[in-house]
Every structure is written in C-alpha cells, then in structure tokens.
Design a protein around this nucleic acid. Sequence first.
DNA 1: TTCATCCTACCCAAC
DNA 2: GTAGGATGAA
Length: 781
Amino acid sequence: MIDYRKELNPAQYEAATTLEGPVLVIAGAGSGKTRTIVYRLANLVEQGVPASSILLLTFTRKSAREMLHRAGRLLEHSATAAVHGGVHGVTGVQGGTFHAFAYSVLRQFRPSGYEAGDLTVMDGADIVDAVRHCKENLGVGKGDRSFPRTQNIVGLISKSRNKELDIDEVIRREAYHLLVHAEGIGRIAAAYHAYRREHGLLDYDDLLFELERLLRERADVLDWCRAKFRYIMVDEYQDTNLVQARLVHLLAGEGGNIMAVGDDAQSIYAFRGADVRNILDFPKLFPGAHVIKLEENYRSVQPVLDLTNAILAEAPQAYRKKLFAAREGGDRPLVVRPLSDLTQASLVVSRIVEFLRSYPPHDIAVLFRAGYQSYHVEVQLNKLGVKFRKYGGLRYSEAAHVKDVLSYARLVLNPLDLPAFQRVAAMSKGVGPKTTLKLYDIARLGDAEATRRACARHPELRADLDLLDGLRKRPHTPTSLLEEVMEHYKPRMEAAFPDDWPRRQQGLEQLLQIAASYRDLDLFISDLSLEDPGEEEENRDSVVLSTIHSAKGLEWGAVLLIDLVEERFPSRHAIARAEDFEEERRLMYVACTRARDHLCLFVPASLYSRGDGGNQPAVPSPFVRELPAHLFDEQHESYSGGLMRRDVQNGQRAAGFGGGRNGAGGVGGIGGGGFAQGGRFDGAPGIPRPPMFAEGTVPGRAGGGATRPASSLPASPSAQPAAPSPLAGGTAPAGQCGYCTHRIFGRGKIVQHLPPDKYRVNFPGFGLKVIMAEYLTLESD
DNA sequence: TTCATCCTACCCAAC
DNA sequence: GTAGGATGAA
C-alpha cells in the first residue's frame, strides 16, 4: 500500500484522495501537479476502480504517457492490476489529447453524414492544401495582392470555429484590414466545409464538434461513454476551449466524477479559442465542486520564483495565489544583453557549453516565442557539434517524402481522400492539377476499367492505382502495407530528391519503426496528424530547443530565454489588444517557471533583418523592463565581444560566466552538483570541446580600440581562466585600423588589409572573416 | 495544361 | 531561406 499522507503535502493529499464528485485543482507552476495526478490514478486503482474506466485527458500524449507510466511504477508493488499506458490501451487507462480521444470514439461510432469511405484526419498541411484548392476553385481573390494568403485564411477559419464566432466577427475583431474581403473569405470557409464532408475528411476542429454532435444525437453513444469512463481527469484545463468544456460536461454528467487540473495564470492558448472562463466557471458548471489549491513550489529556487512572482504580480488573476518555494538558495536570474540577435546566438551557446559542465544535455533548454527564432542558435550549436533537439516547428510527419508515402496508405483506407490523391497523382510527370481532378472524378466512381483507360497516357499513375487496388484486396498490418508502398515509392524518391534521398530513406525506416507498434492503420495515420510520434523518443544527449508553447508542463535545470525584445516577445501581433498582451505575459510566466536552478534572459540590442539593411536597434521587452532590478543580475556584451557586468545591486555577487555557481550561495541543486570545476564537460559524450579561440585571434585582452573596463569579465568558464570564449574574438594590434560594416555580419573591426582588395575583419559573434572590399562599407575615423 | 523560373512577401503559438 | 504566386515557354 502507498502511504499517501507521507508522500504528499496536505493539499496534494486532498486532491489525490477526493475521488468522488467534481474536483477542481488549481495547481501553480511547479507545485507537483503531475505527482498529484499520478497518485490519484494510483489511488483509484487501489480502490478497485478498473483502469479501463478512467479517462485521462491531457494536453499532449507525451504527458499522458508519462503519467500513466509513473502511476504504473507506483503500483508495481501493490497487488492491484497494473495501469497500462498508451493512448489506445485496451485494458488500461485511456489517455491522450481531446482530439485523439474524439477520433477513437468517432471511428467506433461513425457520425451521420460520413457514411461513404473512411474518416481521415487531416494534418496542418492537408488543411492548407484543401483551403487553397477551394480558393482556386472559387476563383476568389485571384490576382488581388491584397487578398490574404491561404495560411492566413486557414487561421481565420480555425479561429472562428474555435471561438465559435462568425467568421465576419473574427475579422472585425482581429483583422480589420481584411474586412473588405470578408465575403470572399466566408465563401472559401463554406466551400472548405463542404469539401471535408464530400471527401470523408476531418480537421482538428471537426473532431471535437463531430464528437459533440454524436454525443448529443445518439443517446446510446453517450450512455456508452458515461458507463465506460466513470472517472475523468483533465489536465491543463485552463487551455480548453468552449467545445472541450462542453464535451467534459457531457461525458461527466452533472455531479460526475470529474477532476479538472489547471492554472489560470498559465493560460497560453487563447489564440486557438482556449477560454479561461472554463476554469473560472467550473464550480458553476459542476455545483458543489471541491476546489483545491496547490501553492507550494518544488521546482524552482527562490530567486527564480521571486522573479516569476513579479511577472505574475502585474497580471490580473482570478485565482490569486503566491507561490512559495520549498527550495532554498540558488542564483538570481541573469539578464544578458548581447549586441545583436546574431551575437546572442554565440552567447547562448557559450552558456550552454558552460551549463553542460553541471547538467546533462537534456536538462538544458533554449526557449523562444516562435519557431524561426532559434535559427541562429541552431547554426552555432552545429558549429560546435552540440547535439540538440527542436520541439515545435516542422513536424517530422510533414516532410514531403513521409507525406507521399502516407498518401498511399490513406488512399487505401479512404479512396475519396482528395488531398492524398492529389499528392500521389502529382508525382507522375505530365500530370498537373487539372488532369488530377479529371482522373479523380473518374476514379471515385469506382469503375476500375474506366479508370484504367483514363490513365492510359500516364503509366506511372496507373501503376499507383494498381498498387492501391492490390493493397485494398488483402488485409495488411500497417508495417506490411507501408513496406510495400515504400518499395514502390523508392525509385520516385530517388528521382525527386537526388541530393538527399538516403537521408529521407532513413526517415522512412523510422516511420516503419513507429508503425510497428500499431495494429490499425487508421489509428496510426490519425496519430501522425494528432501528435507527432516521431518526437517521442527522448534524446538524453541532446540539448532542447523549444517554443514556449511546446515547453508547457516541462522543466529543466537551466533555461535560456532568447529574443526578449519588442516585436518578438511580445509578438508584434499582440501589441494591439490588451488581452493578447496579457497572454504574452502569461507566456513569459510559463517560460520562466520552467527553470529549476538557472534562468537566463537574453535581450539583444539589435535585430538583423535583411529588409532594412542590416541591424536595426531593438527595444527591450516590457517584460524585462518592468522587472524590479534587485531580482536579477545583468551582463552587457561589450563591443569587443566580452561581457561586462553592469549595475548589479549586490556588487559582490559573482555574475560572470559560470554564474554564481562558483560564488557565494551556490545551489544545493537538483542535478546540479555544487561546482563547475572538474570538467564534467570533458566526459560528456558526443560533445567536442569548443574551439578555444577563433581562427587566428589573439587571446587575452590585447586591447583593440575598445577599452575594457576593469569590471569586464572573461567570457569563459572560470575553470579555464586563460581562455576567452570563442566569441570573444581576437583584437587587432592597437591603433592599426578602423571599423567597417557588412550587410550580414554587421559592424566589425578591421584587423588587416590584404592587398589588393581584401580585409580581415573581426565581427563580434562571428570571429575573423576575410572579405572583399566591395562588400564592406568602411568607416572613416 | 504543365513546368521552370523568377520574384516577392512571409514569419506566431498547436491539436 | 522559403513558399507560393505570377509569368512565360514548351
């Protein structure tokens, strides 16, 4: 038996042992939310509740899996039946995202209106393709450059459905400038709706709305669900939207055994219709709900917590709470001010290298607002050979070759799947959009002979259709089917991607691996759209790069947050409306609360943009400007590439690279170990030592032009006292030369003139480069 | 009608 | 850097 009272604090205990009736748990960041859910799961099973009558809805399958896994381990020694993981576990707890759950019910009880063919879940690319198709079909916005892009239209359509507002209303509220096109956009939206019905396709929003419709129209299905799922838990409840809340209400029934867990301060998905009112109104929707608050923070050291509390203090909040730390000691967060976003990348990587002395790679994360912002960091990491894994961004399953192969599989199940048909058809030479549609219209009638004749002029496509026919005739496992498809596809891939097909081949092998754990092809395909299984294998030897949204619910020993300047964070989309701005603030809160021991905030002084000719000055993010100065330490990158500590209140604190870790008040840290010395870095596998010096640079402080004040700190770890960081580029012999500007590298110091027409220039963040004079703008002294 | 090429505007987050 | 739209040749 598990001693719940001993292993949980009182609030957690209450949450884990209140099993009947509605419960709302307000769980502050790092308050042991997952632990609480895990213990409650274990408790339910110990009380004799069959695992199969528990439904655990989480934000990602990853977190569902982790919870089920941990609960299983907890129960290992108890005599009770184990909890089985997996989204579609037959005997175990059902767990996964709302969307995945919806699909699993819909495939079992087909909703009316989708009788023909099979139901196929669309992924992001399919949706864009379909909307584009509708747009072209209608001829709306053709040749009108002010007409929004397809992506944009997809966003508006999804927003209107998620917020359950008329599309005109969404445009009025959020895209006033598009109001002139509202009619056209509305027609596209209507056409897209019809398109999905006609081709047996479900987009993300359909999954939820069709499940709701099913439950309302079919009492038998509702009864079945209620009988089956007698205990429901919903994680990240603050990020549910209206239809999700209604689904929860429907499934649980009034007074049902439903536990919602969330934190209104961490609501960061309003953009897709998440509504904080759901969590605020929970007690109204479920009268008599038990409300429990978890406020003790086990994750972060006090200085990090002080800073995050300060961020939160500015935000309006309904469930007011102030987290207090269970952990003492620790360093203050560090604000680093690089000269530009380019040198920021170098500084970030130097920091990472430093942290690798004390933390395993997977315990270090770089977080950012949007996927593209990590680009420079990725380049720098590659340069040093530091392995990393990026979350949020292009999905593995959206790579062209993966989509190609999956299109065959989709057509086997659902011959009406037009996006898949178009993909397959487009592979044949001489077949374009028009021909594709003509052939599709013939093929959909199911007359094999007519189809064959129509394809006479396109032998490749005919071979495709033959393959599909063959595959439909015999039953297949996902693996065997994919193997056959891949064999057929391989020559085409080699022709289409002559440069890198071997790499893609590997990707396909990986696809086979993933498929091996599925019995049903349709589940495999829908899972690829709903939650990328390619992301699931955890790489313990890779540093993590992640969007903040994808970082939700996770934690790291060291967190580096980049691009904290206006336009980027907060996003330029979020400055117009107060509610958007508040969401950015919560996003900042979420980002900072991911850190256990170390938090570094990077505020570049300029941003590179090719539009306006090089580096443009940047304004520090209000989220940094508003922070009380005593809550963080600060470093500026000096022009010569070093770091200067400036205006730290407690001047005695060590704030150089290596942080206060070597100084007073070291962390009694989790996973940290106390001290950086000792070169654990050398032992880290797969990570070569960074170059000590940039090529040809002069080590040390040989003072090129810029005066480095005495407080200037060496940019390298203290364990290598003599070595400047790779980015503390060399300096020229004093007095020899001036400065120049380069379109890409920005302003740099001329080190040497290489007659007749070249210069050796030191660019902060890039090191020495030899550049032709014509690409440089020289500054006259 | 398809395909190659050029050019421009894009870049927010995810199921 | 790239997607995707416009443009013109085959």
